[in-house]
Measured scan of single mutants.
Amino acid sequence: TFELKGKVGKVVKIAEDHYLVEVEGDKWIAYSDEKLSLGDRVMVVDVDGLKLKVKRIP
């Protein structure tokens, strides 16, 4: 999972307290300090167990 840091993915689902992002064909639970929208491109900035911390990228 640490090899996911720096990888780019996209938001595929928005849940009440987390996001579902697809990175390299796999779906992961993710969270972010900013509000994300469906389809946003994101970069993995940290890995916390099986959850990814992501940030939006242009």
Rank of each mutant, 00 (worst) to 15 (best):
T1L: 15
T1Y: 15
T1G: 15
T1S: 15
E3Q: 02
E3A: 01
K5I: 15
K5V: 15
K5T: 14
G6E: 02
G6W: 02
K7C: 05
V8G: 04
V8K: 05
V8D: 14
V8H: 11
G9E: 00
K10C: 13
K10P: 14
V11I: 12
V11F: 02
I14Y: 05
I14T: 13
I14F: 08
I14A: 12
A15N: 09
A15L: 14
E16C: 07
D17F: 07
H18P: 03
H18G: 08
H18F: 10
Y19G: 09
Y19T: 13
Y19S: 12
Y19C: 07
Y19V: 13
L20G: 06
L20I: 07
L20F: 12
L20Q: 06
V21I: 13
V21A: 08
V21Q: 00
E22P: 01
V23T: 01
V23L: 04
E24R: 01
E24H: 02
E24V: 04
G25Q: 12
G25E: 14
K27L: 11
K27T: 07
W28T: 02
W28C: 02
W28P: 02
W28K: 02
I29F: 10
A30K: 00
Y31V: 11
Y31I: 09
S32W: 11
S32N: 08
S32A: 10
D33L: 05
D33V: 04
E34S: 07
L36S: 03
L36M: 08
S37V: 10
S37P: 06
L38W: 06
G39E: 13
G39W: 11
G39R: 14
D40P: 01
D40M: 08
D40H: 05
R41K: 07
R41L: 07
M43H: 04
M43V: 15
M43P: 01
V44N: 01
V44E: 00
V45P: 00
V45C: 07
V47E: 04
V47F: 14
G49L: 06
G49P: 07
G49R: 04
G49Y: 12
G49C: 07
G49Q: 08
L50N: 10
K51H: 10
L52R: 00
L52N: 02
L52P: 03
L52D: 00
L52H: 01
L52G: 01
L52I: 12
K53V: 04
V54L: 04
K55H: 11
K55R: 10
R56I: 10
R56T: 11
R56M: 12
R56E: 14
I57M: 13
I57A: 08
I57H: 05
I57N: 04
P58V: 03
P58H: 07
P58S: 05
P58K: 04
